[in-house]
Design a protein around this nucleic acid. Structure first.
Length: 585
RNA sequence: GGUUUGGUAGUUCAGUUGGUUAGAAUGUCGGCCUGUCACGCCGAAGGUCGCGGGUUCGAGUCCCGUCCAGACCGCCA
């Protein structure tokens, strides 16, 4: 028996019990004739005591312990004379009687503490040591609980968890595929799924009615703090449903998760906001609605003003930062630099201060009278003491820049509290998006998304105006999930493929199996997929999804611990009939 | 593909206008210490300043290239 108790469970009630503990040495404190050893496992830390006077050899052995040694100790629980109220086991200690070194350890490259001294690179290389740290382990425990509660909720709602294949077929739409060569089929390749999309639809055709899966998906695109090449979705699909059925079901799931995992009761119904309004008022299809600061469109207000930057722009919009009229020149310059960064992309920033004394000061005083500025402030909803910030330029670019500015002001003013959660459904996405490069439409969500019934006639006349039965769940400005009601009729699906520029042959080659299936009685169906990693990161209160993944990859898609990807042996390539071309540097 | 920040002791970082022997903290090792729990005190070891080239009497510091890492833009149906 390696242990009778864990290192986190002994309390004052256990005094005088003989116990056996196993764990890692957190810290050895030599104190003259006595030595204290903190032994740690997943459950906590317990202090061991060795006394040189009464147990010379044992104490000497304890003095030889180093950080991260794996030890087993037999001893008696005793009440401490000096208690430590900072840890749950702080009232007791173990009077050691036997000490076994189960495994020695080299000195670790960083210390295993809550606030580690290791940088990211080191932490990733020695991830197994990083996993011993409380914050990382707690994040993964949150993730575990979430997965458990997802299964519990969906099981209660009669969903069936079904696995779908990982070796599938490459398709041209969407993200770049990860590709796997087939040894038995020379010259042919599998692709790893970007999502189980078509399989879950086929499960609906197969009569499964309610399906879910917590499943790995793969996309070979450039990475970010919130994007990994392999990531996990909570993937769901339901038959005989309309959009509201799906939204209600999964709003329930999200509320269940918040309640059971975070202890947060989200009592109100999640608001629905159209894509159009999201863009108009927030300049983003994933607005952070924890705070206001909505856009005001000002194009007309500046007509004929004489300042061509505002007058000639396709779009002029502004936000009001409350109580910021006291911003200094330096602060305003910093904001100007912020919006002019290439990543934000605005040309400049117009500000108007509505001072406490009733006066007005702006960067465009040359073009406007104070009365005009006050009128403008009224239009924007600015009060005395507020600061208006205005951007102008091409519509999409300027809305995006104003969105970035709004979020930055939200940060500066402390309006983005990580312990506050503001969920909403963004609905009525456009079905199609015009791609300037290829000069054709592509599906905004995916090619199986159904158009709104009332917009179907527009498919022939003005496809760009067609709205889809598509929706995203957004919480605190993060896209947590998205889905749609699917097309379930062969003819409409064919029409979609045609609009997307597929020939009949291409459509058949790529998706013939789906359209065949639709010929045999496909039920109306729809679903949703949630980014499990992002949701877990949000629950853990962190920005990067890497720390809710046990073994993540870096921003170049490398696993620096196992050093992959890596070259393969020539024999392997030969077997796969693969010849490498020279890599150009 | 692009923008940007960084790379100095095991680790986290400082290093001034280009100028003596590159520092601090922490960790490690040794010594002292019987109630510590961020123990304390004394001492020691520890450096290819990412790599290559250039400018200069002289480069951690300036310039060019390159590699690595982070954030972002493009990209991600």
């Amino acid at each position: 028996m390696y242990r009778s108790h864990t290192c986190g469970e002994l309390r004052i009630e256990n005094v005088n019990q003989k116990v056996t503990l196993s764990g890692w040495v957190q810290k050895v404190r030599k104190f003259g004739g006595m030595t204290f050893v903190d032994v740690r496992d997943r459950y906590g830390v317990t202090q061991l005591v060795f006394n040189e006077e009464t147990q010379k050899d044992l104490c000497g052995k304890a003095n030889g312990l180093g950080r991260e040694y794996v030890i087993q100790v037999v001893g008696t629980v005793a009440e401490r004379s000096n208690k430590n109220d900072k840890i749950p086991t702080g009232e007791i200690e173990i009077l050691a009687e036997e000490l076994t070194i189960l495994n020695a350890s080299e000195v670790p490259p960083f210390t295993i503490e809550d606030k580690t001294d290791g940088g990211d690179e080191l932490r990733m290389k020695y991830r197994y040591l990083d996993l011993r740290r409380n914050p990382v382990r707690n994040n993964l425990i949150i993730r575990h609980k979430m997965g458990f509660e997802v299964r519990s909720y969906l099981n209660d709602q009669d969903f069936i968890e079904t696995e779908t294949p990982v070796l599938i077929k490459s398709t041209p739409e969407g993200a770049r595929d990860f590709v796997v060569p087939s040894r038995m089929n020379p010259g042919q390749f599998y692709a790893l799924p970007q999502s189980p999309q078509v399989f879950k639809q086929l499960l609906m055709v197969g009569g499964f009615d309610r399906y879910f899966q917590i499943v790995k998906c793969f996309r070979d695109e450039d990475l970010r703090a919130d994007r990994q090449p392999e990531f996990t979705q909570i993937d769901c699909e339901m038959a005989f449903v309309e959009q509201d059925d799906v939204l209600n079901m999964f709003e329930g799931m999200v509320k269940h998760l918040f309640k059971t995992v975070k202890g947060v009761e989200l009592t109100n119904a999640f608001p629905h906001m159209s894509y159009e309004d999201a863009m108009k008022y927030y300049g983003s299809d994933k607005p952070d609605t924890r705070f206001g600061m909505k856009f005001t469109e000002l194009k007309e207000a500046f007509a004929g003003c004489g300042f061509n930057v505002l007058e000639d722009a396709e779009y002029v919009g502004g936000i009001v930062a409350q109580d910021c009229a006291s911003y200094t020149r330096k602060q305003l310059d910093a904001l100007t630099d912020f919006v002019k960064k290439p990543q934000v992309g605005a040309g400049g920033l117009v500000y108007i201060k509505f001072n406490e004394d009733g006066s007005v000061k702006s960067s465009v005083d040359k073009f406007f009278s104070p009365e005009q500025l006050l009128e403008l402030g009224e239009k924007m909803g600015a009060k005395t003491g507020d600061l208006a910030l205005i951007l102008s330029g091409a519509k999409a670019k300027t809305q995006n820049a104003l969105n970035e500015l709004r979020l930055e002001m939200g940060n500066q003013l402390g309006l983005r509290n990580p312990n506050e959660f503001s969920p909403l459904w963004v609905v009525d996405f456009p079905l199609l998006e015009w791609d300037e490069d290829t000069e054709r439409f592509h599906a905004m969500h995916h090619p199986f998304t159904s158009p709104k019934q009332e917009d179907v006639t527009l498919l022939d006349t003005d496809p760009g105006k067609v709205r889809a039965n598509a929706y995203d769940l957004v919480i605190n400005g993060v896209e947590i999930g998205g889905g749609s009601i699917r097309i379930h009729e062969d003819a409409l699906q064919q029409k979609m493929f045609k609009l997307l520029g597929f020939t009949q042959e291409e459509a058949n080659e790529q998706f013939g199996f789906l359209m065949n299936a639709f010929k045999y009685g496909a039920p109306p169906h729809g679903g949703v997929a949630f980014g499990f990693d992002r949701l877990a990161a949000m629950f853990a209160g962190i920005e990067s999804i890497r720390d809710v993944i046990a073994f993540p990859k870096n921003n170049a898609g490398r696993d620096v611990m196992i050093d992959s990807p890596s070259p393969v042996h020539g024999d392997q390539l030969k077997e796969l009939h693969i010849a490498l071309t020279k890599i150009e540097k």
